[in-house]
Design a protein around this nucleic acid. Structure first.
Lengths: 249, 249
DNA sequence: CGTGGAGTTGACCAACCTCAAAACATGTGG
DNA sequence: CCACATGTTTTGAGGTTGGTCAACTCCACG
């Protein structure tokens, strides 16, 4: 609940009845163990999930069995939102660490749309931001070198974790293996390892026991060509200032 | 108008008042010349566009000036839908051929959400499908060989064109240059050329004077590992069968 | 005709992959 | 608390895919 409310609230200021509706429609949070697949590609999507704590991954397999990770949902993010209106899920997703999620059923989402158009707008906003991240990911994989990709990915994770209060200026927990990184960045795990060594030897960052330490933030940002604009949480006037198009409750 | 209506109509059956509202809120279609940039990355997005005829491209530049094409909007597709709720546009888009578009302003979209929740659902559906295409594109670039990428891309275009009646079984118009393909697939134009030669010599397809001729469809599908599920237009029961959650007009 | 964009080709090269093996963690059951 | 098993990181050697550079050709369009 907590996250869904704060997340959507940052888009449009929700009224108390809207907030009440959200908490009603959302399931009780429940735990999922590390490594569990939550939804599988091609399944009919009956629910969307909101990650309350822990890390997850969304991925697809290519025909020859190579995995491409689409995104790493972090606390506060939706999973499978894009699938609820399609016949079947686009992709699979799984828990990368022990995880707490809550869920919304498809009829619940439709009910939200019907009753609270501003919540609908907030959900579309959230979907738009997810799309922006996938797009940046595509640019990363399509047009950047291995070193840039790795640096860019870690900077994005740092920035997103900071937005939910889970990273300090120069350090954050990160359960990703080098295999996960490789599958996300379109590289081999061996090459990811070489890149991480390079970044370590250049004094940029180190990773030890699932903790990333950034030693030269400015250098990394320059190296990766990182611009965090696409992660902005700010919302345009016309969308955010509510009352103009708010129905009489 | 035509396209917006038929597109959204295939999601939820729109009532006549919903259709009327759509035509009212959509601008008159207007022409844009080939090569014109319609919106630029970072601009404030004041409108979303619906492509009525012709081809377009959505793209971003990486810091070192390499272009990554995100998608090729075809007739009936939205452009910039994901940007209207964000502060600024994610990406640029431009006309690849002479093009006819109509547009929706941001307040119009908000009005649609408020008045017609089912139209809102249909718009989110459309955004979900766009996201599914970007995701497949990411898998393509991240995990497939150059030959697979080119074949997959052309098969996707064929399939999408067929859905709007612009491709026959084995042939379609395609204004893309080899540079465009390269920037979409994360390859160099020279290598795209080599791949196209290979596909030609294998009897898979030929491209001549902006026309793609598929000579061995089954072979191409196998070669690319192409599965068109992500392009499906079918919508789940709960979303499509309307009256259940339809407000009293 | 002539000009510029697009397609084509060859030669060479580098970024990244694959295979193989060892060192290092981490967690589990005894 | 140890011993083993499993998963993860690290390193090396050699090979491929696809990139770069440079040139030439083929059009479409003025």
């Amino acid at each position: 609940m907590m996250y869904l409310k704060t997340k959507l609230n940052c888009v449009v200021e929700l009224t108390s009845s809207e907030v009440a509706c959200l908490s009603e429609l959302q399931s009780q949070p429940f735990q999922i163990k590390r490594g569990t697949e939550i939804a599988h590609e091609g399944q009919i999507a009956r629910r969307a999930f909101i990650l309350q704590s822990g890390w997850a991954s969304c991925y697809k397999y290519s025909r020859d069995g190579d995995r491409q990770i689409i995104s790493f949902p972090l606390p506060g993010d939706f999973m499978g939102l894009g699938s609820i209106l399609l016949r079947s899920s686009n992709y699979s997703f799984a828990a990368l660490s022990d995880v707490v999620v809550s869920s919304l059923s498809v009829p619940c989402v439709m009910k939200l749309f019907e009753k609270f158009p501003r919540v609908a707008a907030a959900i579309l906003w959230s979907a738009s931001r997810d799309e922006a991240m996938v797009i940046e990911h595509l640019v990363n994989v399509g047009r950047r070198s291995a070193i840039e990709r790795v640096a860019h990915c870690l900077l994005e994770l740092r920035q997103r974790l900071r937005l939910v209060g889970l990273a300090s200026e120069s350090q954050f927990e990160c359960p990703l293996t080098q295999y996960d990184l490789a599958d996300s960045l379109g590289l081999s795990p061996i090459h990811v390892n070489r890149v991480l060594r390079y970044l370590r030897e250049e004094g940029m960052l180190t990773i030890k026991s699932h903790t990333v330490n950034v030693h030269n933030l400015a250098g990394l940002i320059k190296l990766a060509g990182f611009d965090s604009a696409y992660l902005d949480q700010i919302v345009p006037e016309e969308v955010a200032t509510p009352r103009a198009y708010c129905r009489a409750s």
